[in-house]
Simulated assay, not measured.
Amino acid sequence: MTKSHEELINDYQHSTSQSFFALYTDWFRQTKSQLRRLNLTHPQVQVLATVEKLNLEAPEVTQAMVAKEADIDPMTASAIITKLAREDFLDRFPGKKNPRSKAIRLTQHGKNNLEKALIVMNDFDKAYWKDTNPNRQELIANFKKKI
């Protein structure tokens, strides 16, 4: 038996994906607000943290490595890396293995701002998930019921 249009809409509005989307949207908006104080976006923090992690593990970090590790599209990674380099968060230089490729590392400015961003994100995440705001608790509870 085929569901009616109204039943399909109702099912969609009460689906796990909609509950997850509502919770994610709330979390993302709050995160964005927190990082705005540092003039950074969440994807930029993700790239900075990934570059730093890879630099601790490998002698040379490339854009392709960052895209793969951060699980983001290579073109998106390229745009973010270019912007961060322009704003002195990252240093790009010819690679030792392949001089045509660019190696990447954080500048001191990038390290300082990454540390601030990670502290902000850590504090925010702790507060967000412990928040007693009834609207947020309802979003979390609705999602938990669906999974």
Rank of each mutant, 00 (worst) to 15 (best):
P59A: 11
I72N: 08
K96N: 12
K102W: 02
V45R: 04
Q46T: 14
A70V: 03
V51G: 12
N10Q: 14
V66N: 04
D91C: 10
R92C: 10
L23E: 09
T76R: 15
N135I: 11
A117F: 07
A49Q: 09
R29A: 09
V51N: 07
L23N: 09
A64R: 13
K111P: 02
T16S: 09
P43R: 04
H5P: 03
Q108W: 05
H42A: 13
D11C: 01
M65F: 02
L56F: 07
R105L: 04
W27S: 00
A58L: 12
L84H: 05
N142P: 01
R29T: 12
V47F: 06
K130I: 11
P134I: 05
P134Y: 05
A22M: 08
N39W: 13
L118D: 09
L8E: 12
R100I: 12
L84D: 00
A67Q: 04
T62H: 07
K83W: 03
L54M: 03
S78T: 12
I147A: 01
D11H: 04
R86E: 14
I72L: 09
E52F: 09
T41Y: 07
K145S: 13
I80A: 08
K126E: 10
A67G: 08
L118F: 06
I9H: 00
K111Q: 09
W129Y: 15
K53Y: 13
M1F: 11
P134S: 04
Q18Y: 01
Q137G: 04
P43D: 03
F143Y: 15
T50F: 00
N122I: 00
K130W: 08
L56G: 13
L35V: 03
R92T: 13
E7G: 00
L35Q: 07
E7Q: 15
K146A: 10
S4F: 02
N10A: 14
V120K: 08
S19T: 06
G95W: 05
F89L: 04
L114D: 02
F20M: 07
M75F: 12
T25E: 05
I119W: 06
R36Q: 15
H42C: 12
P74T: 00
N133H: 06
S4L: 08
T76M: 13
K145C: 03
E138I: 06
Y128E: 05
N39Y: 14
N133Y: 00
P99Y: 00
H5F: 15
D71A: 15
E115S: 11
L106S: 01
M1G: 15
N135E: 13
G95K: 10
N98M: 04
A127Q: 12
A67V: 01
Q63D: 12
Q108H: 12
K146R: 15
S15F: 01
A64M: 06
A127M: 06
I140H: 06
D71V: 13
K96M: 10
R92K: 14
R92Q: 14
A22H: 05
W129L: 07
P99A: 06
H109I: 06
E60M: 06
H109R: 11
S15C: 01
N113R: 14
T31Q: 05
N98V: 03
D123S: 11
R29Y: 09
I119G: 00
F21M: 10
I140W: 07
K102D: 02
F93I: 02
D71R: 15
T25H: 10
T16E: 13
F21T: 09
I9A: 09
E7P: 01
R86D: 14
T41K: 12
T107P: 00
